Simulated assay, not measured.
Amino acid sequence: MSNRNFPLRTAAYALCAVGALAAGGAFLAVGTAHADAPASGANADAAPSVAVQTAKAMRESVSQQIVAYGVVATAGANAATVSLPYVARVTRVLVQPGQRVARGAALFIVQADPAAVVALTQAQSSATLARGELARTQALYRDNLATQSQLAAAQKALDDANQAIAAQSASGIAAGAKTVTAPAAGVVAQVSAAPGDQVQAGSALAQLVGANAGDAKTPNVSLGVEAADAALIHPGERVVLHALAASQQSMQAPGQIAMVGASVDAQSQLVDVGASVPLAGTAFLPGTRVRAEIDAQPGTWWSVPRSAVLQDAHGSYVYQVVPGNKAHRVAVTVKVEHGDVYGVDGALDAARPLVVSGNYELEEGMAVRLNNPGGAQ
């Protein structure tokens, strides 16, 4: 009998096992669902954020930096030409190019042309003769032996002779050797005459350039700038000279703009700009080629790193971090550019950090993580 019921008992045991497994599976599924529920809720609450670096926004003086190139002591206002107002022969040359000379230093020994000396002698003789003739005419006039017109003519003859002597004397004509001196302190840039040369009146004997005192109204550095840049430069603005030679890279000298040209040079296609820079005692000798940094259009703006300024179809803008560590877009207008710094105008807040790195990933209101310990917070 027990053998006959064995299949029934086996079937009953199998049904119980299946029911137990089904119940256990349902319990595990419910347990797993409850275990995953908190994690899913946390992911739903987490918002994307961007790691950024910030700096402090400050208002300070920023200028438009313009770079120009030129030469020391070639500005026309700083050069002087040494010449004679009469024909003369050069007997000695006492200086050479590149030599520094003081005011009144001897440059040449010359002798006036004999014809010029004769003209001076004739003027002196004419004056002596006219003086005597006037005295005789005055005596005759007192005796009623000469007319008023004769007396006036004698007086005019003497006046003309005296004027001729004055003209000859003003030109510096003198018999014998004459020393030609430097009209001002400076450096001999060029010597145009040699011993034995016969020079005409007004011909250049030498050219001097100023001693680089850097007078505010007298340029001693000639620069060339693009026409668009020249429109931004004004007299009085700061300029700093730098040497081009590799061995003198650290050498610099500050000064100011003295003159801005009003036309474009036909050869260089640049506008001439004259700078006044005190160079006495420096290694910036006449003829030195230099690079100049001009601070044009100085003004007080928001000073921000170049990397902080972005641009799109709506214009230039920056991001600042507002309370709650959110990104806030601020529209700006770039006014000047000075190296790696922009001077901008806009509704910036000095109390809010300015994003300088990571800003390309930001959008308005996006969460940020400050990633520069010790920087602006």
Rank of each mutant, 00 (worst) to 15 (best):
A14S: 07
L134Y: 15
A204E: 10
G98E: 07
V277N: 12
V344E: 07
V93P: 03
R306D: 09
A206H: 04
F284L: 06
T179M: 02
L354A: 02
N43K: 03
Y360P: 01
S316M: 02
N78Q: 00
L362Q: 07
V221Q: 05
A47I: 11
G98N: 04
A152L: 14
V110S: 02
H338S: 09
E237R: 08
Q99T: 05
D45A: 10
V322A: 10
G76A: 15
R142C: 13
E226Q: 06
G224L: 00
T333W: 02
A283F: 13
T300D: 10
Q377C: 05
Q150R: 12
A77T: 03
N325S: 09
A119V: 05
A22R: 06
A327W: 09
L129Y: 10
V52Y: 00
Q248T: 10
A46G: 11
L208Y: 02
T10K: 09
D159L: 13
P85G: 10
A308F: 08
H314T: 14
S276F: 01
K178L: 14
H338C: 01
G41R: 01
G375P: 04
A35I: 03
Q53K: 03
A166R: 14
A35R: 12
Q168P: 08
P235E: 04
T81Y: 00
V355Q: 06
V225Q: 07
H234M: 02
R142S: 14
V199C: 11
S40C: 03
E361A: 13
G261W: 09
I109W: 04
M259T: 10
M1D: 03
A14Y: 08
H314C: 00
R306F: 06
T32D: 14
A182K: 11
V271A: 01
G374R: 07
L134S: 15
G214P: 03
D159F: 06
R92L: 10
A26H: 06
T137I: 15
L129E: 11
V93A: 01
G375K: 00
Y317V: 07
S126K: 14
G287Y: 08
H328W: 09
A175L: 15
S126P: 07
V62T: 04
E361T: 08
R103D: 04
R100N: 01
E363Q: 08
A194H: 09
G214E: 13
G358A: 07
A127K: 11
R103P: 01
G324L: 11
G324F: 03
G76N: 15
T288L: 15
R92V: 06
G76C: 06
R103S: 01
